[in-house]
Write a protein that binds this DNA or RNA. Structure first.
Lengths: 225, 225
DNA sequence: CCATGCCTCATCCCATGGGATGAGGCTCGT
DNA sequence: ACGAGCCTCATCCCATGGGATGAGGCATGG
């Protein structure tokens, strides 16, 4: 297996832990994503422990490049390695990106050693592993994805319902990225009026920016990507 | 916690295992889904082990009914129990249905006892658990879900690829609605630096606002609602 | 070793956004 | 007919955002 982390101390610690196991062996190391992509693949690597935050090329992108075309293991030889992504905080944006990149595992760096070792063996066996705390968010997110026609999610949705007809129009236009001037133009009113509406919308939705309005629009499914 | 399974022998086995633990206690049992919905909720149940295949009402539907309105823990009292779904075969159609129903865990019945106990404690703690073999399929499925609505959208996706690692970080934070000041704080750099990054991002993506950045982030699937 | 790219920071300037407040006109339902 | 709610507009003020430009440090790759 291979270790990818920009902190040599971390790599050292992992290597010690792993090499203490009779059935595991570290055959490659890399200090950033670019190096990882170069090194791995030449070597016979079956499992990669990949840090997320690294200089030059982060772990997500490195994973993507390592596994690209993974569904079509080309003419033959090099079987794609299994990648376990490690992170310090469990931001689920990373988790989702990691999954999309094709990772087989997602763990926190402070996971107990035996959990890490178990994870390595699990992914090597072809299964996948996710840190419990991340699993929670993942399931929630997945449930949301599966809930087909968007059941008017969260508390925001109620708030959105309190918008008046005109406010909702403005809301949608904001969500599409229009400036106040453009909205005014589009609705054939003065910009002052638009600003009034925007102010009310912000208050009702307890949003801070128009950016938050956009976020809410997507979260509630009012607009779709 | 509660046990729901139509085979009394199975319930007996689980009860013996669980009651052997000082920190766990079985306070309710049910032989099918309908009974489960009736019994649980009256009792103070925090964790439910739920079989899938049962007469009258299967475990998935029972889970759904137990947790319905889970996102809106109404006025107050009864906290929704965490449900761990148990199955004999890991058909992922069950897994997906279970997730949609709101389950916190998904395990195979032949899981080793310590894994089952660990799972109970994990979900009680608020996290989630999925059997490794199921996790694999789940990730694959999820990756597919994430990819489908994103046919590597438009020209933006390529442009996003031209962002440097740091720029991508800023990009993601913008997409989550942070202000420049907050981003500076989050990345521990000055706001001037953030503004430089933002400027470059805007140029590369040919965006006008940070609002457009958010739009692009969603359109390319870099962040998901 | 030197050029390049990236990250960092600063400063100046103007456009846009958003808060606060007041106010006139419109259509309802009571 | 009257008040309530909504849409409209205006003005003042300050915070934030974004463009332009210059510049230093640092690692990398050639």
């Amino acid at each position: 297996m291979a270790l990818v982390d920009d902190q040599q101390l971390v790599r050292g610690g992992f290597r010690m832990l792993i090499d203490s196991q009779p059935d595991l062996r570290v055959v490659a190391e890399a200090g950033d994503g670019l190096e990882a992509v170069r090194v791995i693949g030449r070597a016979e690597v079956d499992v990669v422990l990949m840090d997320v935050r690294m200089p030059r090329l982060d772990g997500i992108e490195a994973t993507r490049r390592l596994l690209e075309g993974a569904q079509t293991p080309p003419a033959g030889q090099a079987p794609r390695p299994k990648v376990v992504v490690l992170t310090t905080f469990d931001l689920d944006e990373y988790a989702l990106s990691a999954i999309r990149a094709g990772a087989s595992g997602f763990l926190l760096k402070d996971a107990p050693p035996e959990e890490l070792l178990a994870a390595i063996r699990t992914v090597h066996h072809g299964d996948a592993v996710i840190a419990p705390s991340t699993t929670r968010r993942l399931l929630d997110h997945m449930a949301a994805l599966l809930r087909e026609p968007t059941p008017e999610a969260s508390t925001d949705a109620q708030a959105v319902d309190t918008l008046t007809a005109r406010e909702r129009e403005v809301f949608v236009l904001i969500a599409h990225g229009l400036s106040n001037a453009e909205i005014a133009d589009s609705l054939v009113v003065s910009e002052a009026t638009v600003k009034t509406h925007v102010g009310r919308i912000l208050a009702k939705l307890q949003a801070r920016d128009r950016v938050h309005i956009v976020l809410i629009a997507y979260a509630t499914g009012v607009v779709v990507p």
